[in-house]
Nucleic acid binder design. Structure first.
Length: 839
RNA sequence: GCGGACGUGGCGGAAUCGGUAGACGCAGCGGACUUAAAAUCCGUUUUCCCAAGGAAGUGCGGGUUCGAGUCCCGCCGUCCGCACCA
């Protein structure tokens, strides 16, 4: 029996099976002659369920991948799992399930959900980062970097949770306490591995310049994160000592305005003084307390402790400056010491006013050149240098250069480029991560695991009953022999930060030999990723680490590319209204009834409408992808993900919106179902042209990822088809539609393609060609303006001359009435657009 | 505090180069079909005076231009990133 409606449940399953059977999403060979197109969406963490944000992300990538295939590209469109990380260990502790078991089950569940979307993914390349076959290669690369000096080991302070016996990231410390245990977090020194990303700071910065297909916003965020600043390192000699204090400044031009030296609480000089000065020791302790949140720093008072020491001013040895320990100086930026120039730095001014230190103007603020500086607002602008002896009258820039030259000549300082970026600490005292392939030997020290003993596999028999890292207390796993001297030795029990796993997965997708991380030729045939799509939340860390990892491989001669992602797109979130009942509890959308805008709960209680927010479990404003696919089918859901909102902005999920998509899917299906058999007879030029415009326009919009505009153009074409009464043109236009919608509505497109007698699968067809001549109209509507205001429109041949257009405009009845016989002062003619008559 | 983005109908948004503002969708309103509903179809919807025809209009105030949503200056608002970075 003939269906009267499109049945997505049936169609989705049918066509997904057909695609799989024909293996049409298999990646072409590396030597495929077609141009390559690598489309990649950020791979998901297997938390257990796909959420709607994934659906939006993967739909966008899928549209592009399918479109690129139709336009003659060899496409790589893979998917995998960012499978290591904390949630699996938390699940292990809470539910007693092994992290691996939990993760594998989640992957299976999420893959089943993804399959329902009908994504054009080559699943044969799927992997999870917790596969030993993946992380073993990561260990090999770690060792390469170790040998190349890119990895180093350093004692460094970490946030230590004494109850959970683990290191916490800064984000996991809330009000000084561990986010899980609630225990007071301790600062603890541990030997940790670092990647020397700061060595790459300059090239990571300049490399941003060639990423012209990245959002400016992301490039700027990375630029700020790297935080390059140029200045002077100056040595201030301690009075009565051979030693000195090194200071970094970006304002050497203000050196004659110096009034004190300030060092960080954990500066070695402060530490050594504290040994014999209990008051200072107390002060240092005080500095370490107090939060580091934005609000706290905003209001934090400047605190200082006068050490009683003084230093010589490098420009005048007779001029002595007091040395203070100050809470606003950071040990891990610059040298951990600054000279205070209160007149031209707000922090220094606050500090100087509080402790009664001199405030001396050395940069003129307009007419103000007086050495005595009034007020509590520092002058940080540019101006002529004053009260600075030989530098008086110089510009700030000239003075900086002059003083750096002098410092280098007199050997008390040198120019310095300073970066905000810190080296990447990659040690984690956790189980569920890539084991760091290092062996500790009492005689030989730190020794890399020999390549032929990789992968160092995580042991399965671990227990999470006690807090801490299970690798650390495993009865046998730690024990091994030194690869060099064969003496008993210990394995490193730390694992790698999971950001390492996601720093090269895109290379592994492109090439996955067994015996190496990747084969160079094959990887380079696909890389860099042609289009990378994901959330803005990864703007800094993931994207910076992946760029760094790629450059590290490049520096070691392993790969020729330097940038992994040629184009980046950051999509917006999916949002939904929030609801609360009378007692303030969150309600989910299906617990709320809407009758003409009046909201009630299912039991009739009052409901208030809250803000539109990102879908989250805690606010209960989520829609479950499985549920909506059950109800509307994959295509309607995909269509909604692409409609209305520009992809980089947030998308508001609404019931009425998805129902509109569902209606449109049905409308298309009716068109296919009732299409005429023959395309002979008279033509409807307007429809024929609309068709060609749609083909060209939709292609351009998919290419530029403006899917909302592509959607609008398809609506326009369908509206035009439905309005037209000319069978021949309708016949042809309807036969264009399946290919046009195939990237976005792939199941319906197959259904239509089949119903209209197409052979094979529409997913394998070429994108329809458009006739450029059909994109231009013979007649154009021209605006007739008087003094820039629209008065009428006239229709003229497209190639009408200026003279013809002007004459036609002047002959227009409304123009005649408006100018009333007067002579126009000026007439502007823009051919094909408008005539503006100035009177 | 520093840096950045954005502000267009009831809502999401379109307007690619400074050239007819409001495409397309949602919601609304009126109508057709129907015993009725659903579904579908037709029409309509920036505001004001409204019959015609006008006038105003893209956060606010200025400017450049024959012409500004678009460019420039100054405000206001919202959002995002970083932050005692010397």
């Amino acid at each position: 029996m003939h269906d009267t409606r499109f049945n997505p449940i049936k169609a989705d399953a049918t066509w997904q099976a057909a695609w799989e059977k024909a293996a049409i999403f298999a990646t072409p060979a590396a030597d495929d002659p077609r141009p390559k197109s690598y489309v990649l969406e950020m791979f998901p963490y297997p938390s257990g369920r796909i959420h709607i944000g994934h659906v939006r992300n993967y739909t966008m990538g899928d549209v592009l991948a399918r479109f690129r295939t139709m336009t003659g590209h060899a496409v790589l469109h893979p998917m995998g799992w960012d499978a290591f990380g904390m949630p699996a260990e938390n699940a292990a502790m809470e539910k007693g399930v092994h992290p691996g078991t939990w993760t594998r089950a989640n992957i299976a569940a999420m893959k089943a959900q993804l399959l329902r979307l009908g994504l054009a993914i080559d699943w044969s390349r799927e992997f999870a980062t917790c596969d030993a076959a993946y992380y073993g290669h990561e260990q090999a690369m770690f060792l390469d970097m170790f040998d190349a000096g890119i990895v180093y080991r350093k004692e460094s302070a970490v946030n230590w949770d004494p109850v959970d016996r683990t290191v916490l990231a800064n984000e996991q410390v809330i009000d000084g306490r561990g986010w899980r245990s609630g225990a007071l977090v301790e600062r603890k020194k541990l030997n940790q591995y670092f990647l020397r990303i700061t060595d790459f700071a300059e090239e990571l910065l300049t490399g941003l310049g060639e990423l012209d297909k990245w959002p400016d916003k992301v490039r700027l965020m990375q630029e700020n994160w790297i935080g390059k600043s140029e200045g002077l390192i100056a040595n201030f000699s301690l009075v009565g000592s051979e030693q000195g204090v090194e200071v970094f400044t970006t304002r050497p031009d203000t050196m004659y305005g110096a009034s004190f030296l300030a060092i960080a609480a954990d500066h070695p000089l402060a530490q050594s003084l504290a040994a014999n000065a209990p008051e200072l020791a107390t002060f240092i302790e005080q500095c370490k307390q107090g939060g580091t949140t934005a609000a706290e720093l905003e209001t934090a008072e400047k605190l200082g402790f006068n050490t009683g020491l003084s230093v010589q001013h490098p420009l005048d040895p007779d001029w002595h400056l007091p040395v203070w320990v100050a809470n606003f100086v950071l040990m891990d930026y610059g040298t951990g010491a600054v000279f205070g120039c209160p007149a031209h730095d707000q922090r220094d001014l606050d500090f100087a006013r509080k402790y009664g230190l001199p405030v001396r103007r050395v940069v003129a603020d307009g007419d103000a050149t007086d050495a005595d500086f009034d007020g509590d607002i520092a002058f940080t602008g540019a101006g002529a240098i004053v009260n600075s002896h030989w530098m008086d009258g110089m510009s700030v820039a000239a003075a900086k250069a002059a003083i750096i030259a002098r410092a280098e000549h007199d050997r008390w300082g040198h120019a310095k480029v300073q970066y905000r970026l810190r080296d990447w600490g990659i040690s984690r005292q956790r189980y569920w991560g890539t084991p760091i392939p290092i062996i500790h030997c009492d005689a030989c020290g730190v020794v890399g695991v020999p390549r032929d003993q990789l992968p160092v596999v995580l042991p399965d028999d671990v227990d999470f009953a006690t807090p801490g890292n299970p690798l650390d207390r495993h009865p046998t796993w730690r024990d091994t022999n030194c690869p060099k001297c064969n003496a008993p030795a210990r394995r490193e029990t730390d694992t790698l930060d999971t950001f390492a796993d996601s720093s090269w997965y895109f290379i592994r997708f492109a090439s996955q030999p067994q015996d190496a991380p990747f084969s160079r030729a094959e990887a380079e045939s696909w890389l860099p990723v042609g289009q990378y799509i994901g959330g803005i939340e990864h703007a800094i860390l993931h994207l910076l680490y992946a760029r760094f990892w790629t450059r590290a491989l490049h520096r070691m001669g392993k790969i020729s590319i330097t940038e992994p992602f040629a184009a980046l797109f950051t999509q917006g979130m999916v949002t939904h209204e929030t609801y609360r009942d009378a007692t303030g509890n969150w309600l989910s959308p299906d617990e709320v009834r809407d009758e003409n805008g009046v909201l009630t709960s299912l039991d009739g209680g009052a409901v208030t409408r809250g803000r539109v927010e990102k879908m989250s479990k805690s606010k209960k404003n989520v829609v479950d992808p499985d549920g909506i696919i059950d109800q509307y089918g994959a295509d309607a859901v995909r269509w909604f993900m692409l409609s209305d909102s520009p992809p980089e902005r947030d998308l508001l999920w609404t019931e009425s919106g998805i129902e509109g998509c569902w209606r449109f899917v049905q409308r298309l299906w009716r068109l296919f179902d009732a299409a005429a058999e023959s395309g002979d007879g008279a033509r409807d030029m307007a429809l024929d042209k609309a068709c060609h415009r749609a083909i060209a326009g939709v292609a351009a919009d998919i290419e530029s990822l403006t899917f909302n505009k592509a959607v609008a153009k398809i609506y326009e074409l369908v509206n035009a088809i439905e309005k037209s009464r000319v069978p021949a043109s309708r016949h042809d236009a309807i036969r264009i539609l399946p290919r046009l919608i195939s990237p976005m509505l792939p199941h319906l497109a197959e259904e239509g393609w089949q119903a209209l007698g197409g052979s094979g699968l529409v997913a394998q067809q070429s994108w329809p060609e458009h006739d450029a001549a059909m994109l231009v109209d013979d007649d154009v509507t021209i605006a007739v303006q008087i003094n820039g205001k629209l008065r009428d429109t006239i229709t003229l041949p497209r190639d009408a001359s200026r003279e013809v257009a002007q004459a036609a405009a002047l002959a227009n009845a409304r123009v005649q009435a408006a100018i009333a016989g007067a002579t126009p002062k000026k007439i502007i003619v823009v051919p094909g657009r408008l005539v503006n008559i100035v009177v």
